[in-house]
């Protein structure tokens, strides 16, 4: 059941080197892959670029063929009102169910909605989906992101 809400996210290992990010975005551009959501985490020497795209299989094979180290992860996405407390409503549910959030990022959806993406430990993925759903939060199906 929770599989239904598994959104494929691509994590790309990047050295902190001039032009490296551009190489990823240009590869996506050439392949006509649309980036729907992204987050970049960085340390002093390297970074991890996380992408949700409209065609993960295509994006992944393009990036791999260009020599990038890519890892596919399951994340889930929820839609909340774009008002104070929207984010909190989801985080509270996860907290109450002892589910640690590895990372999260968000973008403003259409109208007065915001879309939040969550990565939780894989073994807690199903539990998280169930808890969020039970809490009355609207889960987004992957088709929202994909073509």
């Amino acid at each position: 059941m929770s599989k239904k809400y598994a959104v494929k996210q691509l994590s790309i290992f990047l050295e902190n080197r001039k032009g490296r990010l551009l190489e990823v975005t240009e590869a996506m551009e050439r392949a006509r892959v649309n980036i729907r959501a992204l987050a970049l985490a960085e340390s002093a020497e390297f970074g991890i670029l996380r992408l949700v795209v409209n065609n993960p299989e295509k994006a992944r094979s393009i990036l791999a063929s260009e020599g990038f180290t890519v890892k596919e992860q399951n994340v889930f996405a929820v839609e909340v009102p774009d008002t104070p407390g929207g984010f909190s409503s989801v985080v509270r549910i996860l907290h109450d169910n002892d589910i640690n959030v590895d990372y999260t990022y968000a973008f403003v959806g259409g109208g007065d909605k915001a879309v939040l993406i969550f990565k939780v430990p894989d073994r807690l993925f199903d539990v998280a989906i169930q808890a969020v759903e039970k809490g009355g939060i609207k889960l987004m199906e992957p088709m929202f992101f994909y073509d």
Partner: peptide, 15 residues
């Protein structure tokens, strides 16, 4: 080299 087997999707894990 960080390859797919090594690459844990987390700054903390890599550090």
């Amino acid at each position: 080299e960080v390859d797919e087997a090594t690459f844990a999707d987390g700054i903390g894990a890599l550090e």
